[in-house]
């Protein structure tokens, strides 16, 4: 089921062009759009999505999917908050325990998927409900707050003109890109995504790599949970609810093949940038959220469907050309 995109037109170019278009459209829609300070400030809303998307890129390249990231985020934040607020655990320790939990949640996904050889889609669909449900059991509809002052408002911390969380995301992006492109383990991920059986036969420890990725994804989501708790200065069970869709949209829009084996971090980050610009532009233009949903949904489908349709049309054309040339 793998269809190749055109070789000479990289997906990143399309995205860059679309991003420029979104910038133009945004400035047409609202006179308040082209304000560098504001645009940099809004990026803090998308940092958590971005960090989760980095790991999701690797997971999708590996031929899997992780729908449970947003729920892991919420459960980590909730557990950290409860440990600190109800059990008076020192905050730094609560954070560490929260991260430990996040790693375990990711590892549980890994164990079920690798150990029991279950499809990642259903496993993480189950844990998506289970983890958020667990957060709900923990704190119900309450907001758990009372974090120390130094912890709150990480999105307000700037390094020069840049929000630190944005720099964190970019640094994470560079690290992930290096990992995927330059390390043996990174290349293994592509190999597994391309052909699992062949990878296994050639001696790769496929299961170990997959389990590691899911654990890392859990850890990343946990970190995002702490970031978001800091941004909101509270933890709630419905934090980032539905964000897994945004994460997957960014990755797939960024050109990573949902069937695995192909893709990269640069595309994911560009796609995220495009989505953020679109949302911001439409929001500033007072376009209702329901219409924004339609645009994002159409963009996701269009980004996948159009290249495939173009490829189909090209094949049809070639088929018709061949007999003509032969005759």
């Amino acid at each position: 089921m793998k269809s190749s995109h055109s070789i000479f037109w990289r997906n990143e170019y399309t995205l860059a062009a679309l991003t420029v278009l979104a910038l133009l459209a945004g400035s047409r829609l609202s006179s308040h759009f082209l304000d560098a300070g504001y645009l940099l400030g809004t990026t803090t809303l998308y940092v958590e999505t971005g960090i989760m998307a980095l790991l999701m890129t690797a997971i999708i390249i590996c031929g899997h999917i992780d729908l449970s990231v947003a729920s892991t985020l919420a459960l980590t934040a909730a557990a950290t908050g409860v440990l600190h607020a109800q059990y008076a655990v020192p905050f730094w320790l609560a954070c560490c325990l929260g991260m430990l939990l996040a790693g375990m949640l990711g590892a549980l996904n890994g164990v079920l998927i690798v150990g029991m050889n279950l499809p990642s889609l259903t496993v993480t669909l189950g844990t998506m409900a289970l983890y958020r449900g667990a957060a709900q059991i923990l704190i119900g509809d309450h907001s758990v707050g009372g974090f120390p002052a130094w912890f709150c408002g990480v999105d307000q911390v700037y390094a020069g003109p840049f929000p630190v969380t944005l720099l964190l995301l970019l640094a994470g992006g560079c690290a992930m890109a290096l990992f995927l492109q330059r390390t043996t383990l990174g290349r293994c991920i592509y190999a597994i995504g391309n052909n699992k059986t062949a990878s296994r036969l050639s001696g790769l420890r496929v299961g170990a790599v997959e389990a590691l990725l899911f654990t890392l994804s859990g850890l990343a989501a946990g970190m995002c949970g702490l970031l978001m708790a800091s941004r909101l200065s509270v933890a709630r069970f419905d934090m980032a609810s539905g964000k897994e869709l945004d994460v997957i949209t960014a990755v797939v829009l960024g050109g990573t093949d949902i069937f695995g084996g192909k893709g990269g971090v640069a595309g994911t980050l560009l796609a995220l940038c495009l989505l953020a610009l679109l949302r911001t532009g439409m929001g500033l233009a007072d376009i209702p959220s329901e219409k924004q949903q339609i645009v994002v949904g159409a963009l996701l489908i269009g980004a996948i469907a159009l290249p495939r349709l173009a490829e189909l049309a090209r094949k049809q054309y070639m088929k018709r050309q061949k007999p003509a040339a032969a005759g």
Binding site: S30, H32, D35, Y38, G41, T42, L45, S143, M228, L232, R236, D238, M239, A240, S241, G242, R279, T280, G283, L284, D286, P288, S289, E290, Q293
Partner: peptide, 24 residues
């Protein structure tokens, strides 16, 4: 103008508020 988030989750109102601040 009325601007509603799609669902009643705690965080969905935040981007709308920020956009309206920016809109003056």
């Amino acid at each position: 103008t009325q601007l509603a988030p799609a669902t009643a989750e705690a965080t969905n109102q935040i981007p709308i508020i920020q956009q309206q601040i920016q809109n003056g």
